[in-house]
Design a protein around this nucleic acid. Structure first.
Lengths: 217, 217
DNA sequence: GCTGTTATATATACAGTGTATATCTATTCG
DNA sequence: CGAATAGATATACACTGTATATATAACAGC
């Protein structure tokens, strides 16, 4: 069946489609985080019954993958104009800013271990930049994992300030652990922590290490 | 009340306690992953009613934090004998192996953004090693985040092979997306991927970058 | 021994979650 | 038009964490 046959502008049937649903889903996670994306919440948001979504996505995993696909595809990773260092800075800066603009994204993907196809665009950029410097394909891929792991972990760290304790939990904790250090929430960095500078510092170290490997070739 | 007043060896009341519960919880996540740790599953495992657990933990977050605390505390991070490089290799090697022995651990902690107090032991090791080389405290902490982010992301990548599609999901997907690339599961590395070598390679790059920073002081 | 207090385990219930199954309806095609 | 089909719905199930109220077991002091 032709995909564009969706009831024209008939208001009776809402115009569901993968695209519209992904739009709405992104709205949800941008507003209230990855946890806010539930089948029922999304159905409510588009004014439809939960099970209706299953005519467009085979599962929540499928939906999540589509969200990731869309967001990552909307980002350009190969815009660096200078040398390999600039290219990598651009590429992973773009990845980082994508994660910061959509703080729910890394959580969402990690939640179900989904890796959208598009997520490997930065890998291609990295391989191209480094192989041009004489690095082997294997080492280029390894370096890609290094850069990606670092970038995502930093973005996640920046995006999630300490989640507050639920009030009732706090009360019960006092009752229970008269002894024993209670659990500790994600410890915040000092409030004036400069995430940009911190990320840049770590990236600089990595780039310097890469340069050493390249020169040692 | 004295903590050791737990009914002696009376079999009527099972000997619940934070320690025993954490033991059982670790058993669950080691056997079936982070997702297998639910209040009800843990209660079943120790032969008790779900709500009984809430006399020992204020919430599931509390339980998770205790599990993390215990596992991390059981690990020694400062056993390196050589120079700062060896110390860091030892420290983050230990962190990595901890995560590999308990593949559910990173997921578990990330799940609720919990960071056990003990998780900052590696930070102390890193600060000590690097400040001894003249690095500032700020940069040492930044470097710690770099090393931790890399180590955890690599361990997570190694621990989670592609989750299989649920059978019904596969069927429905065929029905739906006659068009559109379906979602992609975590793409596996090639089957002969050498995780140890890959981790070592990335760590080497980081250490080389650090050395550059230290020398440039 | 008995009694009151405190610690712990239970029973029940609620609001969520993803999704299987069956049904109903609106649209399109022959 | 009638038949086929795509898509939305209604209901239900098994699961989650946990609030609330109740019951029971252990201990303190008499």
């Amino acid at each position: 069946m032709d995909r564009t046959t969706t009831t024209g502008n008939n208001p009776r049937r809402p115009d569901l489609s993968r695209d519209n649903l992904v739009d709405a889903a992104i709205g949800l996670i941008d507003r209230d985080g990855a946890g806010a994306l539930s089948i029922r919440a999304l159905a409510d948001a588009v004014g439809v019954t939960p099970m209706a979504l299953y005519n467009h996505f085979s599962s929540k995993r499928d939906l999540i993958a589509a969200v990731g696909e869309r967001l990552i595809r909307s980002t350009q990773f190969d815009g660096g104009h200078g040398d390999w260092r600039e290219q990598l800075r651009y590429c992973f800066g773009a990845l980082r800013h994508l994660c910061l603009r959509h703080p729910g994204l890394p959580d969402l993907l990690k939640l179900d271990g989904v890796v959208p196809e598009a997520a490997y665009a930065p890998m291609d950029v990295t391989k191209k930049a480094l192989q041009a410097q004489g690095m082997s394909e294997l080492d280029s891929v390894r370096t890609f994992f290094l850069l990606t792991g670092y970038t995502l972990s930093q973005a996640a760290f920046q995006s999630h300030p300490t989640p507050a304790l639920a009030p009732t939990e706090k009360v019960r904790r006092e009752r229970i652990s008269g002894r024993g250090h209670g659990p500790v929430d994600r410890r915040d960095p000092p409030p004036e922590w400069d995430f940009d500078a911190s990320f840049s510092f770590g990236l600089g170290i990595i780039l310097e290490g890469i340069e050493g490997r390249i020169r040692a070739r």
